[in-house]
């Protein structure tokens, strides 16, 4: 992730996001309805925070023209990863999302502009029965509003397994 990502919270984006999670709550698509609610506007759904990824020029899980991608076109391929790259499992497809938590300091409303800043947290390893050696790493993302006040704290724990997890 870039050191800092600034992004607009747009009403249309909230509508699309709510649709993708199958949430038909009118507060996410009907401005009049939202205005009359306690929050007084269109709020971001609880997990909307992640969309900063769209504005992150360095985001590694979005294909970019001319850059190698892990996935299939004519062939299925892995992507070579440099040693210092944040390990998203791109080489092997074995990076998984282990844990996610949010602290909400106040509701975020459509029309705001937020700034996300990420810092690394702890890292640890564990031997698992279903996945071999698991390497966990924590990332903490804080979202600030235009006044510089914190609005959301998001903690991500990623895990890279030494083999595909047994089903």
């Amino acid at each position: 992730m870039a050191d800092e990502v600034t992004f607009p919270v747009e009403a249309g984006h909230i509508m699309l996001f709510a649709r993708a999670i199958g949430d038909e709550n009118p507060i996410y698509k009907d401005a009049e309805y939202a205005k009359a609610s306690e929050v007084g506007g269109i709020p971001a759904p609880p997990t909307f925070e992640r969309v900063w990824a769209h504005w992150d020029p360095d985001y590694s899980l979005r294909p970019k023209p001319g850059e190698p991608w892990f996935g299939s076109a004519a062939e299925a391929t892995a992507r070579p990863q440099s040693a210092d790259e944040e390990d998203d499992g791109g080489g092997s497809g074995r990076g998984l999302h282990a844990e996610q938590r949010y602290v909400y300091h106040r509701p975020v409303l459509a029309g705001e502009t937020l700034t996300a800043r990420m810092r690394p947290g702890k890292t640890w390893t564990k031997e698992g029965r279903r996945a071999g050696t698991m390497t966990f790493s924590e990332g903490i993302i804080e979202l600030f509003d235009e006044a510089g006040e914190i609005v959301i704290t998001a903690t991500t724990v990623g895990v890279t397994t030494s083999r595909a997890v047994d089903q």
Binding site: F17, R50, Y59, G71, S72, A76, G93, G95
Partner: peptide
């Protein structure tokens, strides 16, 4: 598309 996470393990069967 809505979230911006295009990791192919979610959408790409051959990979």
């Amino acid at each position: 598309g809505a979230s911006g996470d295009y990791n192919p393990i979610h959408t790409d069967t051959p990979f």
